[in-house]
Amino acid sequence: MRMLAVFEKGERIRHIGHLDIQRSVQRGLRRSGLPVAYSNGFNPHILITFASALSTGACGKREIMDVTMAEDVSSEEFLDRMNKAMPPEMQLSEARPLDQKHPALMASLRAAEYDLLIRDPGQAGKLTAAIPAMMAKETVPAMRKTKTALKECDIKPLIYELKGEGQHILATLVLTEREACKPGMLIEALSREAGIEGEEVRMLITRTALLGMDENDRLVPLETL
């Protein structure tokens, strides 16, 4: 059987990279004593996938994993045993069994919701004030980092929603296997609009939800699909 589980990447461990998070989840599964399925071969590993890698430095409120179990387990038992086996910064909030034929999480991923806490209140005000002007534009150029170079791209079509609330910028941005608008790209473009280009914007990035598309083309939390 497959089990979908929603977990947190807490603030204290936000600098941990995705590979290390993956390994920590696997070790948590091994500590839990839950009947997980292993790959065959010389170096057996737990059959597990993650909906999306979360960047080093970012926190996650509702990150999603998909674990293949060797035997059936109830969601309650899964949650209970995993939460005893995981460190306080990586607790699970939800689990539910998935149909064997359920599409891969990554394939259904469409967008992500972010809460960007701007450390400097002055900068936060300027950035929030610049949102309407930027959103009124046809195109919003930004620089995308590829493995080898910086590439210019237009992030306007990648922004579903963008608003300011106090020191927070709340954004819903495209995130698929093929394309993505990273929070850093957004803030860079917004800084330009706000006339604070080149200033360092210190912020705490929290990815608050991963979203998929329901049959009515509405963005909904990926875990509910």
């Binding site: 600098h15 990279g17 290390d20 500590r31 430095g57 995981m86 306080p88 910064e89 210190r202």
Partner: peptide, 18 residues
């Protein structure tokens, strides 16, 4: 926290391990 944002290999310093 400010230092952690700038330093290389921040997880060396953050703790919170199992």
């Amino acid at each position: 926290e400010r230092v952690l944002e700038k330093v290389q290999k921040a997880p060396r310093y953050t703790g919170g391990e199992m």
